[in-house]
């Protein structure tokens, strides 16, 4: 698109910045908007993986941490931190998680849950 000079002409660096920015956006979209349904749930306590469970069940479980009991609920394809002894309650307010890669951390009680997709290379532990 070449005009007679009356209009502005982008420089080569402008194209470069634009392409880099588009690549960055592409990465952001693929990273954050990749809504793959989760199939499994990992629970960590104090940095240790303590359980990997299938999401295809209805179950409530309790994990004990330094502050007390964190209760986690699994409900056919989704999971949440149902209650936590921590003061800020960020983990509880995050609500239901259902996409692969989503996670909820309760740092005060050192408990975290993480949803895994089908394509993850982890093997599952059966309880």
């Amino acid at each position: 698109m070449k005009t007679s000079g009356a209009w502005i002409r982008p420089l080569s660096g402008d194209y470069l910045i634009f392409i880099i920015a588009l690549a960055l956006l592409g990465w952001l979209f693929s990273h954050y908007w990749n809504w793959q349904a989760a199939t499994r749930l990992q629970i960590h306590q104090g940095g240790q993986l303590i359980a990997t469970l299938t999401l295809d069940q209805q179950r409530e479980l309790s994990v004990s941490g330094p502050l007390g009991i964190t209760r986690i609920e699994i409900d056919h394809g989704r999971a949440r931190v149902h209650s936590s002894p921590c003061t800020n309650q960020y983990c509880v307010h995050q609500g239901w998680l259902s996409h692969a890669g989503q996670a909820s951390f309760c740092l005060p009680n050192r408990v975290s849950i993480r949803l895994m997709g089908a394509s993850s290379s982890y093997d599952s532990l059966n309880y």
Binding site: I8, P10, L11, S12, G13, D14, L16, I17, F18, A21
Partner: peptide, 18 residues
């Protein structure tokens, strides 16, 4: 400080907005 020969106001505007 980007070279003015290659990077114009469009570059700076995009970078600043991001």
């Amino acid at each position: 400080f980007l070279p003015k020969k290659y990077f114009g106001p469009l570059s700076l505007s995009m970078l600043a907005a991001l």
